[in-house]
Design a protein around this nucleic acid. Structure first.
Lengths: 338, 338
DNA sequence: CTGTTAGCGCGTTCAG
DNA sequence: CTGAACGCGCTAACAG
């Protein structure tokens, strides 16, 4: 049976309040008594009961704001799932969530959402940051004021925050390279179709891919990297053009909109082996349908969950999270889910 | 702010106690009042606060027994990690864990451990069941007495239980076949070295492997399946013999002791591509060292965690888990962890 | 500096 | 059949 404050109080011959002050290092307490109590607590292996303090915390009614940089699409659905899973867990502790959606990477919208969240009484912010000096400045300012900010799914270079939750994009890049390498037995030609580098993670992933191909024998080559612009019609044309320009390519590394990819495949009428990024109901279907061959997931759901969880822990028990929380990616073949 | 019993009581003009009885369907309550309160609770979106009831439950001091079929080895270390992670979470709720270790699949030991656990006041049992009629009989009996039993990592055919937590062994078998298929580009010869079928999951995995190779073109063939006996010296000789008997084999599917495998590799002095089962610190090292090529994890840690969690939920909030909880497996290459 | 007390939401028990 | 009250462990506010 775990030790309670009461147990320690009895053992030390003091009151429960004194024990609490000693262990929480509050002032107005005799240093000697405090030391004795701390000693005793260690001996008796005391650990505060989190659910009891949770009950108390409930009356504090913390609010966490979650701010996105765009409005929903299939990508964010998965993040939201994780966030709602976390919400379910923390609402018993009296912590509530408020979601704010930006639009198309618009910096001024994101800035005003931050202000709005704070005006509406947020005690912490989970943010998918847009890579802009204005946002960076605002976050620095908040951090200086000790206002907790957690980056979700991306981060800002040299901008301090409570924690940044994302996946190791560089690694996922290398993983894609590795998969092509293994599936091709080290022999063939590859093209990479990637999103524009507006978001930092995309850049890192590209680096990972490039580095992997640099380090292997030249029997397998990365012929070209194409940056997409997230404008479907435009991207479809670009991809078609590039695939026609490199007719010997058999392997594609693709990160972007699935529908765009499928359209292209229909039009070029050639068979590729494709490494695709991010699991979603749609990409799952494409995998089962053999339209794509492997998916590298970036565990969006887990990222969403952890982002909320980290601020929750911080608010309710002052647990300081690691500056960076890397969520594992996974490799998924058809046979893993059919 | 979530609704509480008090809120409903005020809204209904009754006392907290009455509301509680109505919602928990206890007797000694006016059916009409009860119905009205239930209605009101739905409208006000009432959900009981789990941490508050947890605090109350604490005084009940539930005990969960976890019974293993063998004594520790590197395989179980990972399960134990998951179990201890769960223990940490549930101890605040006044639920404690007691571990019991059997020996070498010995049925009579497992039977006596079950008796011992119950004698020592266990309120539920998590069991790695040995595939034996005696165990089956005992579990049936317990189930009839409404004593909660959860199977961990395996299960017994046609034996009812609260829940069985394991991975889809058949699928992991197919996944190994698929990996060889993709890595070999559908061309080559394979040998499978598997543990004896004393445990049901092993059998299913074997089936999965066999089925996969049945369904593909005969350019890739499963030359032989060897059943190991978990006796290192003996197994090493067996493996050496078989590898020499099939000199054209280039691909190995291996489930068993890593040291045995590494010894064999040193002795045969030939290069294989190996699909290995189960992630552990040791197998991780072997992967990084390129002694093995891919690991299929069966998420032992997650299984251990979920097994404890499921009984915890059941004991503290009568949540009936699904009869079967399949934990996802994962595919891990060197580049995923280096 | 220290002790006491109220109360977080729920479950139970006892008195009406 | 229903209301009132206590206690789970912890925190915070207040009294000494």
């Amino acid at each position: 049976m775990p030790t309670t404050l009461k147990d320690i109080a009895m053992a030390a011959g003091v009151s429960i309040g004194t024990v609490e002050r000693a262990l929480k290092n509050r002032d107005r307490i005799n240093p000697q008594v405090a030391e004795h109590i701390r000693q005793l607590a260690k001996e008796m292996d005391y650990h505060p009961n989190k659910i009891a303090s949770g009950l108390v915390n409930r009356s504090r009614k913390y609010k966490i704001a979650v701010i996105f940089h765009v409005s929903g699409n299939e990508f964010w659905d998965d993040v939201l799932k994780g966030i709602h899973r976390a919400e379910k867990k923390i609402k018993d502790y009296g912590v509530s969530l408020q979601l704010y959606f930006g639009k198309d990477f618009d910096v001024s919208i994101q800035l005003s959402l931050i202000d709005q969240a704070i005006a509406e009484g947020a005690n912490a912010i989970v943010l998918v940051p847009i890579n802009s000096p204005l946002i960076a400045k605002r976050i620095r300012q908040l951090h200086k004021e000790n206002f907790p900010v957690v980056f979700l799914n991306s981060y800002l270079n040299r901008v301090p925050c409570l924690s940044a939750i994302h996946c190791d994009s560089y690694r996922t890049g290398r993983m894609a390279g590795m998969l092509v390498d293994r599936l091709s037995q080290g022999c063939g030609k590859v093209i990479a179709l990637l999103p524009s580098s507006k978001v930092l993670g995309n850049n890192l992933r590209k680096e990972g891919i490039i580095e992997y191909f640099k380090a292997i024998p030249p029997t397998l080559t990365l012929e070209k990297i194409v940056e997409l612009e997230n404008i479907p019609d435009h991207d479809i044309l670009t991809i078609q053009k590039e695939l026609n320009a490199y007719p010997q390519v058999q392997y594609i590394i693709y990160c972007g909109d699935l529908d765009v990819f499928l359209s292209c495949m229909q039009r070029v009428n050639r068979k590729y082996t494709t490494i695709f990024y991010d699991l979603s109901p749609q990409s799952k279907k494409a995998l089962l349908n053999r339209d794509i061959d492997v998916i590298i997931t970036q565990s969006q759901q887990e990222q969403g969950y952890q982002a909320v969880n980290v601020v929750f822990q911080y608010l309710t028990s002052k647990t300081v999270p690691p500056k960076e929380l890397l969520i594992d990616s996974q490799i998924i073949f058809k046979e893993c889910i059919d």
